[in-house]
Protein backbone atom coordinates (compact mmCIF):
# COMPACT_ATOMS: atom_id res chain seq x y z
CA UNK A 1 0.00 0.00 0.00
CA UNK A 2 1.21 3.49 -0.78
CA UNK A 3 0.88 6.33 1.69
CA UNK A 4 -0.80 6.31 5.10
CA UNK A 5 -4.04 4.34 5.52
CA UNK A 6 -7.43 6.06 5.43
CA UNK A 7 -8.84 3.88 8.17
CA UNK A 8 -7.10 1.82 10.78
CA UNK A 9 -8.40 -0.06 13.80
CA UNK A 10 -6.12 -1.46 16.47
CA UNK A 11 -7.34 -4.09 18.91
CA UNK A 12 -10.93 -2.97 18.38
CA UNK A 13 -13.16 -4.79 20.87
CA UNK A 14 -16.88 -4.61 21.56
CA UNK A 15 -18.43 -6.64 24.35
CA UNK A 16 -22.12 -6.94 25.21
CA UNK A 17 -22.14 -8.38 28.71
CA UNK A 18 -20.70 -11.84 28.15
CA UNK A 19 -20.81 -11.72 24.34
CA UNK A 20 -17.71 -10.42 22.58
CA UNK A 21 -18.98 -9.30 19.18
CA UNK A 22 -15.71 -7.76 18.02
CA UNK A 23 -12.60 -9.25 19.59
CA UNK A 24 -9.49 -7.22 18.93
CA UNK A 25 -9.84 -6.47 15.24
CA UNK A 26 -6.79 -4.98 13.49
CA UNK A 27 -8.05 -3.62 10.22
CA UNK A 28 -6.48 -1.32 7.66
CA UNK A 29 -7.98 0.32 4.59
CA UNK A 30 -6.10 2.41 2.07
CA UNK A 31 -7.38 5.63 0.49
CA UNK A 32 -9.83 4.95 -2.32
CA UNK A 33 -9.82 1.22 -1.66
CA UNK A 34 -12.89 -0.99 -2.14
CA UNK A 35 -12.91 -3.84 0.36
CA UNK A 36 -15.40 -6.61 0.90
CA UNK A 37 -16.04 -7.93 4.38
CA UNK A 38 -17.44 -11.43 4.65
CA UNK A 39 -18.07 -13.79 7.52
CA UNK A 40 -20.78 -16.06 8.93
CA UNK A 41 -23.83 -14.73 10.79
CA UNK A 42 -22.87 -13.24 14.12
CA UNK A 43 -19.22 -12.75 13.11
CA UNK A 44 -19.42 -9.15 14.26
CA UNK A 45 -19.50 -7.33 10.92
CA UNK A 46 -22.42 -5.04 11.71
CA UNK A 47 -21.07 -4.37 15.19
CA UNK A 48 -17.74 -3.42 13.62
CA UNK A 49 -19.58 -0.87 11.44
CA UNK A 50 -21.49 0.48 14.41
CA UNK A 51 -18.22 1.11 16.22
CA UNK A 52 -16.80 2.91 13.20
CA UNK A 53 -19.84 5.21 12.94
CA UNK A 54 -20.13 6.00 16.65
CA UNK A 55 -23.44 4.18 17.12
CA UNK A 56 -21.60 2.01 19.63
CA UNK A 57 -18.68 3.02 21.78
CA UNK A 58 -16.04 0.29 21.63
CA UNK A 59 -15.09 -1.40 24.89
CA UNK A 60 -11.43 -1.28 23.95
CA UNK A 61 -9.16 -0.40 21.10
CA UNK A 62 -8.50 2.47 18.75
CA UNK A 63 -10.07 3.69 15.52
CA UNK A 64 -8.04 6.06 13.38
CA UNK A 65 -9.57 7.84 10.39
CA UNK A 66 -7.08 9.90 8.47
CA UNK A 67 -4.77 9.54 11.47
CA UNK A 68 -7.31 10.95 13.96
CA UNK A 69 -9.09 8.99 16.66
CA UNK A 70 -12.85 8.46 16.33
CA UNK A 71 -13.44 6.67 19.63
CA UNK A 72 -15.96 8.54 21.77
CA UNK A 73 -17.15 10.81 18.97
CA UNK A 74 -20.86 11.30 18.31
CA UNK A 75 -22.38 9.74 15.17
CA UNK A 76 -23.10 13.13 13.61
CA UNK A 77 -19.54 14.36 13.97
CA UNK A 78 -18.15 11.14 12.52
CA UNK A 79 -20.55 11.61 9.61
CA UNK A 80 -19.22 15.15 9.22
CA UNK A 81 -15.69 13.80 9.00
CA UNK A 82 -16.78 11.85 5.94
CA UNK A 83 -17.92 8.38 6.96
CA UNK A 84 -21.37 7.37 5.81
CA UNK A 85 -23.21 4.10 6.38
CA UNK A 86 -25.95 2.06 4.77
CA UNK A 87 -27.28 0.03 7.67
CA UNK A 88 -28.20 -3.64 7.46
CA UNK A 89 -31.90 -2.90 7.96
CA UNK A 90 -32.61 0.04 5.64
CA UNK A 91 -32.96 3.20 7.70
CA UNK A 92 -34.95 5.81 5.78
CA UNK A 93 -37.42 8.60 6.38
CA UNK A 94 -40.41 6.43 5.65
CA UNK A 95 -42.99 9.19 5.56
CA UNK A 96 -41.05 11.30 3.04
CA UNK A 97 -40.68 10.97 -0.71
CA UNK A 98 -37.55 9.67 -2.41
CA UNK A 99 -36.53 13.20 -3.41
CA UNK A 100 -37.16 14.59 0.08
CA UNK A 101 -35.08 11.80 1.61
CA UNK A 102 -32.19 12.64 -0.67
CA UNK A 103 -32.64 16.36 -0.17
CA UNK A 104 -32.17 15.98 3.60
CA UNK A 105 -28.95 14.11 3.07
CA UNK A 106 -27.65 16.48 0.42
CA UNK A 107 -28.69 19.78 2.04
CA UNK A 108 -26.29 19.67 4.99
CA UNK A 109 -23.25 20.61 2.94
CA UNK A 110 -24.88 22.35 -0.03
CA UNK A 111 -26.92 25.44 -0.83
CA UNK A 112 -30.39 25.20 -2.40
CA UNK A 113 -29.29 25.08 -6.02
CA UNK A 114 -26.48 22.61 -5.38
CA UNK A 115 -28.83 20.43 -3.36
CA UNK A 116 -31.34 20.30 -6.19
CA UNK A 117 -28.62 19.40 -8.68
CA UNK A 118 -27.21 16.71 -6.38
CA UNK A 119 -30.66 15.17 -5.81
CA UNK A 120 -31.34 15.09 -9.56
CA UNK A 121 -28.02 13.43 -10.23
CA UNK A 122 -28.20 10.85 -7.46
CA UNK A 123 -31.80 9.88 -8.10
CA UNK A 124 -30.69 8.91 -11.61
CA UNK A 125 -27.52 7.21 -10.47
CA UNK A 126 -29.39 4.84 -8.15
CA UNK A 127 -32.09 4.22 -10.75
CA UNK A 128 -34.99 5.91 -8.98
CA UNK A 129 -35.54 8.85 -11.35
CA UNK A 130 -39.10 7.77 -12.13
CA UNK A 131 -39.86 7.19 -8.44
CA UNK A 132 -38.66 10.56 -7.14
CA UNK A 133 -42.09 11.48 -5.78
CA UNK A 134 -42.93 8.07 -4.31
CA UNK A 135 -43.15 7.80 -0.55
CA UNK A 136 -40.22 5.78 0.79
CA UNK A 137 -42.39 3.36 2.75
CA UNK A 138 -44.19 2.35 -0.44
CA UNK A 139 -41.06 1.34 -2.34
CA UNK A 140 -40.36 -2.35 -2.88
CA UNK A 141 -37.46 -3.72 -0.88
CA UNK A 142 -34.81 -3.52 -3.59
CA UNK A 143 -35.58 0.12 -4.30
CA UNK A 144 -35.43 0.92 -0.60
CA UNK A 145 -31.89 -0.42 -0.60
CA UNK A 146 -31.04 1.82 -3.55
CA UNK A 147 -32.58 4.82 -1.89
CA UNK A 148 -30.41 4.28 1.14
CA UNK A 149 -27.41 3.92 -1.13
CA UNK A 150 -28.44 7.29 -2.54
CA UNK A 151 -28.65 8.81 0.95
CA UNK A 152 -25.13 7.64 1.70
CA UNK A 153 -23.91 9.00 -1.59
CA UNK A 154 -25.63 12.36 -1.07
CA UNK A 155 -23.44 12.90 2.00
CA UNK A 156 -20.49 12.85 -0.38
CA UNK A 157 -18.42 10.77 2.04
CA UNK A 158 -14.78 9.79 1.80
CA UNK A 159 -15.55 6.37 3.22
CA UNK A 160 -18.77 4.47 2.53
CA UNK A 161 -19.81 1.55 4.70
CA UNK A 162 -22.40 -0.68 3.06
CA UNK A 163 -23.95 -3.38 5.22
CA UNK A 164 -25.51 -6.04 2.97
CA UNK A 165 -26.56 -3.73 0.13
CA UNK A 166 -28.09 -6.54 -1.96
CA UNK A 167 -30.04 -8.35 0.77
CA UNK A 168 -33.46 -9.32 -0.52
CA UNK A 169 -32.74 -8.37 -4.13
CA UNK A 170 -33.48 -10.33 -7.30
CA UNK A 171 -30.60 -11.44 -9.52
CA UNK A 172 -31.08 -8.55 -11.92
CA UNK A 173 -31.21 -6.08 -9.06
CA UNK A 174 -27.99 -7.51 -7.63
CA UNK A 175 -26.22 -7.06 -10.96
CA UNK A 176 -27.49 -3.51 -11.19
CA UNK A 177 -26.36 -2.77 -7.64
CA UNK A 178 -22.90 -4.07 -8.52
CA UNK A 179 -22.86 -1.59 -11.41
CA UNK A 180 -23.84 1.29 -9.14
CA UNK A 181 -21.20 0.37 -6.58
CA UNK A 182 -18.45 0.04 -9.17
CA UNK A 183 -19.48 3.45 -10.50
CA UNK A 184 -19.49 5.27 -7.15
CA UNK A 185 -16.47 3.36 -5.85
CA UNK A 186 -14.23 4.94 -8.43
CA UNK A 187 -13.48 8.01 -6.43
CA UNK A 188 -14.02 6.96 -2.83
CA UNK A 189 -13.10 4.28 -0.32
CA UNK A 190 -15.69 1.66 0.51
CA UNK A 191 -16.22 -1.33 2.78
CA UNK A 192 -18.98 -3.67 1.68
CA UNK A 193 -20.36 -6.41 3.92
CA UNK A 194 -21.96 -9.16 1.87
CA UNK A 195 -22.96 -12.81 1.94
CA UNK A 196 -23.53 -13.11 -1.82
CA UNK A 197 -20.32 -14.51 -3.31
CA UNK A 198 -21.31 -13.84 -6.91
CA UNK A 199 -21.91 -10.22 -6.03
CA UNK A 200 -18.54 -9.97 -4.30
CA UNK A 201 -16.81 -11.38 -7.37
CA UNK A 202 -18.46 -8.64 -9.42
CA UNK A 203 -16.99 -5.82 -7.32
CA UNK A 204 -14.16 -6.94 -5.07
CA UNK A 205 -10.44 -6.62 -5.28
CA UNK A 206 -9.51 -7.64 -1.77
CA UNK A 207 -11.66 -9.51 0.72
CA UNK A 208 -11.43 -9.61 4.51
CA UNK A 209 -12.93 -12.56 6.37
CA UNK A 210 -14.39 -11.93 9.82
CA UNK A 211 -14.88 -14.80 12.23
CA UNK A 212 -15.90 -14.52 15.86
CA UNK A 213 -15.00 -10.86 15.95
CA UNK A 214 -11.50 -11.38 14.56
CA UNK A 215 -9.94 -11.07 11.16
CA UNK A 216 -9.39 -14.61 9.93
CA UNK A 217 -7.94 -13.90 6.51
CA UNK A 218 -7.37 -11.10 4.06
CA UNK A 219 -6.56 -11.70 0.41
CA UNK A 220 -7.84 -11.60 -3.15
CA UNK A 221 -11.18 -13.26 -3.80
CA UNK A 222 -9.61 -16.20 -5.64
CA UNK A 223 -7.17 -16.94 -2.84
CA UNK A 224 -9.92 -16.59 -0.25
CA UNK A 225 -12.07 -19.09 -2.14
CA UNK A 226 -9.14 -21.51 -2.16
CA UNK A 227 -8.37 -21.07 1.55
CA UNK A 228 -9.12 -24.25 3.53
CA UNK A 229 -9.69 -22.48 6.85
CA UNK A 230 -12.13 -20.00 5.32
CA UNK A 231 -14.04 -22.83 3.64
CA UNK A 232 -14.40 -24.56 6.96
CA UNK A 233 -15.87 -21.65 8.92
CA UNK A 234 -17.85 -20.03 6.21
CA UNK A 235 -18.00 -20.95 2.59
CA UNK A 236 -19.21 -24.52 2.88
CA UNK A 237 -22.39 -23.48 4.61
CA UNK A 238 -22.79 -20.16 2.88
CA UNK A 239 -22.28 -21.37 -0.71
CA UNK A 240 -25.33 -23.58 -0.21
CA UNK A 241 -27.32 -20.64 1.07
CA UNK A 242 -26.21 -18.61 -1.93
CA UNK A 243 -27.55 -21.27 -4.34
CA UNK A 244 -30.85 -21.36 -2.54
CA UNK A 245 -31.25 -17.66 -2.95
CA UNK A 246 -30.40 -17.49 -6.62
CA UNK A 247 -33.09 -20.10 -7.31
CA UNK A 248 -35.71 -18.02 -5.58
Amino acid sequence: MTGPPLLETRGLTMRFGGVTAVAGADFTLGPGELRCLIGPNGAGKSTFFKCLTGQLRPTEGEILFDGESLVGEEPHSIARRGISIKTQVPSLFDGLSVAENLRLAAARTRNRAETRAAVDEIVGLVGLADRADSIASQLPHGQRQWLELGLVLACDPRLMLLDEPTAGMTKQEVARTAGIIREIGRDRAMIVVEHDMQFIQMIAHRVTVFHQGRILAEDTMDNILADEQVRDVYLGKQAGAGRERSDA
Binding site: Q55, S77, A79, S84, I85, S91, R108, T109, C155
Partner: peptide
Protein backbone atom coordinates in the same frame (compact mmCIF):
# COMPACT_ATOMS: atom_id res chain seq x y z
CA UNK B 1 -30.63 7.64 14.15
CA UNK B 2 -30.64 8.22 10.40
CA UNK B 3 -30.66 12.00 10.81
CA UNK B 4 -27.55 11.77 12.98
CA UNK B 5 -25.84 9.42 10.55
CA UNK B 6 -26.40 12.09 7.91
CA UNK B 7 -24.34 14.46 10.05
CA UNK B 8 -27.02 16.49 11.84
CA UNK B 9 -26.68 17.06 15.57
Amino acid sequence: ARTELLGYD
